[in-house]
């Protein structure tokens, strides 16, 4: 277990190094001049000589690898640079958005599980019956509707027309979070309900199920003690992966519902060509994602005794 954990941690560090290199390279290759971008945000572009001086001062004339090394060194000390657009430390700006991001992500994951698992299970139990077709059509809607469209429609109908829920998610109250979280959950639920259905059907075809039934165990015991737990285990990994797509994918919903989290910060950074902030965003999202997945893997090994031995 310990050795495995150590191995995973080394892996994470290697991947982070790779990603840091990539994000630095990306900005290095970006069209436009970083010094000019830095000043353009304040509306005053100094003369070419002054900019050349600053370029020299900032070390932008040094070879690429040297620039990368000094940047990386600063990052490791927690210094991700100063945002061009807001003049504040990037780390501080990102940190303030982490909790809102995770809150929205987890809330929508929870909503999704509540929607998807019953749908999938019922769909599987009533396979090819009318209720199965109804539920499958529902899940089909989920995966085919553009989530920004769903968000806009919900905003329009529930927020503006019926005035049931707030239309801006500024401030993070649970009531304000319902619409954004549901928008995200709706699309995911479609995908998951299909997975749950398939996983349950597959599990039901296993020999041990026939065996258990043949031994005279009741169907409900088989279903609850064996089929569902076994079918749910792979979903845990999927949840971890979904969190990844949520970390980037919430941007659309954040924009629609004015929810201030990492995604909308990234969009704002892009519009302002705030390179340090974009770089910081990539690194932070990678780090959060990998830590959460590590946590998922660890919990996985507790749930599945086979893995604890370390295969």
């Amino acid at each position: 277990m310990k050795r495995q954990l150590a191995k995973r941690l080394t892996q994470i560090i290697i991947v982070l190094l790779g990603i840091s290199f990539m994000s630095f390279l990306l900005v290095y290759l970006a069209p436009g001049d970083p010094v000019r971008a830095m000043f353009a945000v304040s509306g005053n572009i100094p003369s070419e000589e002054v900019m050349a001086e600053i370029r020299e001062e900032m070390g932008l004339n040094r070879p690429f690898l040297m620039q990368y090394a000094s940047w990386l060194k600063n990052c490791l000390q927690g210094d991700f640079g100063i945002s061009y657009s807001q003049g504040k430390p990037v780390a501080q700006m990102l940190a303030s958005r982490v909790w809102p991001t995770l809150y929205l992500a987890f809330l929508s994951l929870a909503m999704m599980v509540v929607m998807a698992v019953p749908t999938g299970v019922i769909s599987a139990l009533y396979q090819n019956r009318p209720i199965d077709y109804v539920m499958r059509s529902g899940t089909f809607l989920g995966i085919s509707m553009p989530n920004f469209w769903v968000g806009l429609l919900l905003l329009y109908l529930i927020g503006v027309k019926l005035k049931l829920l707030p239309v801006v998610a500024v401030g993070m109250g649970f009531k304000k979070m319902i619409l954004p979280a549901f928008t995200l959950a709706f699309a995911m639920a479609g995908k998951y309900a299909r997975q749950v259905r398939a996983a349950i059907l597959e599990e039901m075809n296993q020999d041990y199920v026939s065996g258990a039934l043949a031994r005279g165990l009741s169907e409900s015991t088989v279903l609850w003690r064996h089929v569902i737990p076994n079918a749910m285990l792979p979903l845990l990994t999927m949840l971890g992966l979904s969190l990844g797509s949520l970390l980037g994918g919430t941007a659309v919903v954040e924009v629609i519902f004015s929810y201030p989290a990492l995604g909308s910060l990234a969009i704002a950074a892009i519009i302002a060509m705030d390179y340090p902030l974009i770089q910081g965003y990539i690194l932070w999202v990678a780090l959060i994602y990998m830590l959460v997945n590590l946590a998922v893997d660890i919990s996985y090994s507790f749930l599945d005794p086979r893995l604890r031995k370390g295969v």
């Binding site: 980037g248 995604g263 990234a266 999202v285 994602y289």
Partner: peptide
């Protein structure tokens, strides 16, 4: 092992 959409947004944003 990286959230793809986040990276894609950053890439598209930096390239314009």
């Amino acid at each position: 092992s990286f959230p793809g959409m986040a990276l894609a947004i950053a890439i598209a944003g930096i390239m314009g």
